[in-house]
Structure formats: structure tokens, C-alpha cells
Computed example of a mutant assay.
Amino acid sequence: MAWFIKLERGIVDKPTFDQFVPAHVAYVKELVAKGHQAKTGYWKERGGGMLLFQASSLDEAKAIVQADPLIQNGCVSYELHEWCVVVE
């Protein structure tokens, strides 16, 4: 499986964003359980973050991102990139 990165920037106020964080965390835990090796976090200075995960194709990666509660509820804008690992 290939690695993908969703780089995101918050586009709503913090109270709105925070109400969807528990659903996002549960969603990422579900990805981990399904073998996508997902990791999520935010930038220390706030205002954005990243989701790192594995998927079998770009189409699957797009579907994974679209199912994220932060995307579904319009909390973030994002870029999706396939990450080519050079050294493991």
C-alpha cells in the first residue's frame, strides 16, 4: 500500500471545529483498525494539521479523506498528496 498525506487548514472557529474532533479521532482509530496505519495531529502553532495513512490507490485515499468528519462538516480545507518514501 502507498502512503498518503492530507495537509489541512482549519476554516471555522475553534468552538465549531472542536465539536467534530471526537468524531475525527474515532474515525482515525477505525482507519488504524482497518490496517491503514493512520496517524493524525495538528501543528503546534494551531490552525492546521495532517493525516498520514496508507491506501491501495489514489481513489481509495480520496474516499478515505471524504469520509473524515472534519471534511464532511466543512471544518478544514485540504491538499492530498501521495508520499514516496525514500528511506524506511
Score class of each variant (00 low, 15 high):
Tyr78Trp: 07
His24Glu: 00
Pro15Phe: 02
Leu31Val: 15
Lys44Leu: 15
Lys29Thr: 11
Phe20Val: 01
Gly48Asn: 08
Lys14Val: 14
Val21Tyr: 02
Glu45Phe: 08
Gln54Met: 07
Phe4Arg: 04
Tyr42Asn: 14
Gln66Leu: 14
Lys14Met: 15
Ala55Trp: 03
Pro22Asp: 06
Gly10Pro: 13
Val12Met: 13
Gly35Asn: 07
Val21Arg: 14
Ile71Trp: 06
Gly10Asn: 07
Asp59Arg: 08
His81Tyr: 10
Trp83Met: 15
Trp43Glu: 09
Val25Ala: 06
Glu82Thr: 06
Ser77Gln: 12
Val32Tyr: 13
Leu58Ala: 10
Thr16Leu: 05
Leu31Cys: 01
Val25Tyr: 04
Val28Ser: 05
Ala2Ile: 03
Glu79Ser: 10
Val25Lys: 12
Cys75Met: 01
Val85Ser: 06
Ala23Pro: 05
Ser56His: 12
Val65Leu: 05
Trp43Ile: 05
Gly47Ser: 13
Arg46Trp: 11
Thr16Ile: 01
Lys29Ala: 07
Gly35Thr: 14
Asp59Thr: 14
Lys14Tyr: 09
Lys14Gln: 15
Gln66Cys: 03
Asp18Pro: 03
Gly74Ala: 11
Leu70Val: 00
Ser57Gln: 06
Val32Leu: 09
Phe20Gln: 12
His81Lys: 09
Trp83Ala: 01
Lys34Asp: 14
Lys39Ser: 14
Cys84Gly: 12
Ile71Arg: 08
Thr40Ser: 14
Ala55Lys: 03
Lys39Ala: 15
Gly35Tyr: 06
Gln54Cys: 09
His36Thr: 06
Ser56Thr: 14
Trp83Ser: 02
Ile5Arg: 02
Leu51Phe: 06
Glu79Thr: 08
Pro15Arg: 03
Leu70Gln: 04
Gly41Gln: 09
Leu7Pro: 03
Met50Glu: 11
Arg46Gln: 10
Lys29Asn: 11
Gly48Arg: 05
Arg9Tyr: 12
Arg46Met: 13
Lys6Ser: 09
Asp59Gly: 14
Ala61Asn: 00
Gly49Thr: 00
Ala2Cys: 09
Lys62Cys: 11
Pro15Glu: 04
Gly10Tyr: 12
Ile64Trp: 03
Gln19Ser: 11
Met50Ala: 08
Glu82Cys: 03
Asp68Lys: 00
Tyr78Thr: 01
Asp59Phe: 05
Lys14Ala: 15
Tyr78Asp: 04
Pro15Trp: 03
Gly49Lys: 00
Trp43Gly: 11
Arg46Ser: 13
Trp3Ala: 00
Ala2Tyr: 03
Ile5Cys: 11
Pro22His: 06
Met1Cys: 09
Leu7Val: 09
Gln19Glu: 10
His36Val: 06
Gly10Ala: 09
Lys44Asn: 13
His36Tyr: 12
Arg9Lys: 07
Glu30Arg: 15
His36Glu: 07
Trp43Thr: 02
Gly35Ala: 11
Asp18His: 12
Ala2Gln: 08
Gln72His: 00
Ala55Leu: 00
Val21Ala: 14
Gly49Glu: 00
Phe4Leu: 07
Ile5Pro: 13
